[in-house]
Structures are given as structure tokens and as C-alpha cells.
Simulated scan of single mutants.
Amino acid sequence: MSSARAALPTRQVEKPWGKDVLPAPFTAPEGVRIGEIWFEPPAALPDLLVKYIFTSEALSVQVHPSDAQTIAKGIGRQGKEECWLIIAAEPGATLGIGFDSDLDEAAMRAAALDGSIEHLLTWHPVAPGDFFYIPANTVHAIGAGVGLIEVQQNSDITYRLYDYGRPRELHLDDGVAVSKGERYVLDRWHKTVAPHGSQQLVDGPLFLLDQVAGAPSPEVAARYPAALLVIPREGDVEVGGEAIAPGGCAFAASLADVRFADNGVCLLARGCADGA
């Protein structure tokens, strides 16, 4: 058993759309809007990044490239696919994902420039337990009043298409070039997650993600034969003898290092080595 701490270090990221009052166990410095809590990826699992995201205003309308696109651009494998598990939602909270109708590049660029792109997005109502997978090239925006857990490829390449007049850089050329101006296939990419159930959420090709209630079943355990991330949602979990509470994220060298509470709920995640 390793003597290194299992709990991953965190980093609070200030955002104009963040919140100055965060839900427990998080706290924001006085007068600072924190939008994201990052868990620093461990050296043994560098390809995954876990975040909590809290919004008081909508995020920019944005898009991420794929691995193939960043490799073709000569900057290596830096694509970004991500998924969101909604943990809190104020009345009327929504996520903008995909478009109501198809857009070509010229129409998308024009809509980004005049701001109408915000109204062309499909805004999906959300509630705790909603789960969305966001493939690369999907135009999206997280709305106000949302709290979520994000698991993503460890890349920070974001192309902003529209930012509601905020004084931040836009990336129209790069963004439009990789954007799919199409509908989001809700039946394929959305799930409803029971708060106390076990459920497979992502089955590759870039990473795996499961929610487990109590100890994982043999079928789930078989999908995690080596190092993994453990994200408690309800009740503590012990990783390498260290108690990890909800709001934390831990690295485990193997499932043998993890003690699951019978009444606990947590997420398990790992990258896929062959997810090129």
C-alpha cells in the first residue's frame, strides 16, 4: 500500500459566472466567484480530469476539438470529451447542447457574431440525476443555477463562440472549424441516474465511468482491474486507509485499496489506454 495521500489536491478556479457562496463542503474566498473545483490528475492517471462546476450565470457558448483534430493541428492528443452529472439545479435551470436545426459554417459564424447563437441552441431542462455525455465538436453552454460533477479528458482547449458580451477572447475561426451544427441526440447521450443505484455511465472509448452503490459488483470490478479514481457522492469511502468524504476525489492503485461503505454511493473512473 502506498504511503502517498490518496486524496487528490484541489484547485479553485475563479470564473465570472461562478458563485461566491458554494455548497458544503466547499467554501469560496470572500468576494471571489469560484466556478470550478479541479482535482489535480495523478501521475498514474494523467488523462482524466474531475471537476465540480457551480454556476450563477451561463457559461460561454463553446466547443472542444477531438484528439484527431488536435493531432492534425500538430499539438498532440489534446481533444476533449466530457460528461456531466447534475447534482443541483435551481428552478428553470438548463443546459444548451446542440441546435434546434442544422447550421452550416457560415450560418454558425454569423449567429456567433450577432449573438443569436444563444437562441439557436437547444436548451434542455435539468434536475439532479440527469447525466449528459458531450462528444467533441458538440456546441454547448451550461446555464445558470447548475451544480455538476464533470469528468473529462485532461485537456483545457476550449473554443468560445459567444460570451454574452463579456470581455474575454473568442475563437471563431478555430471554433467554427470543429463545430457540428446539428441536433444533440438525447436518446443516445443522456441518462437518468438513480441517487442510490449502481449504473454504468460511460463505456469508453476514451474513459469509463460507473456509479456504484455499496461495493461494486463483480461485473463492475472487472472493468477496473488497475488504477482508478474514486469520487464519493454519499457517505465516506476509504482509499488506502484514508477516509474520503463527498466533495473529494481520490486515486486508488487498485480496487483492493478501496473500502466501500454498505450504504455509500460513489463514482469510479479510469481512462482507456486504447482510446485514440
Rank of each mutant, 00 (worst) to 15 (best):
S3Q: 13
A4V: 13
R5A: 09
V13Y: 02
P16C: 05
D20C: 11
L22A: 02
A28G: 05
P29D: 06
V32P: 02
G35L: 00
W38S: 00
L45E: 06
I53D: 06
I53N: 07
F54W: 08
A58I: 01
V61Y: 06
V63T: 11
D67M: 03
A68C: 06
T70K: 02
I75A: 02
I75K: 04
R77G: 10
A93E: 03
L103P: 03
D104F: 08
M108P: 09
R109S: 05
A110V: 11
A110M: 12
L113V: 13
G115M: 12
L120Q: 10
L121E: 09
P125C: 08
V126C: 12
F131Y: 06
I134S: 03
V139F: 03
G143T: 01
V151I: 15
I157M: 08
T158L: 04
R160K: 11
L161M: 05
L161T: 05
L170C: 02
R183N: 14
R183S: 15
Y184T: 05
Y184W: 06
V185I: 14
L186M: 15
L186W: 08
Q199T: 01
V202P: 06
G204I: 04
F207L: 00
S217E: 02
A222W: 11
P225L: 07
G235A: 07
G241D: 05
A245N: 13
C249M: 08
C249T: 02
A250D: 08
A256G: 12
A261R: 10
N263Y: 13
N263P: 07
V265I: 13
L267K: 14
L267M: 09
A269W: 13
G271C: 15
A273T: 12
D274E: 15
A276I: 12
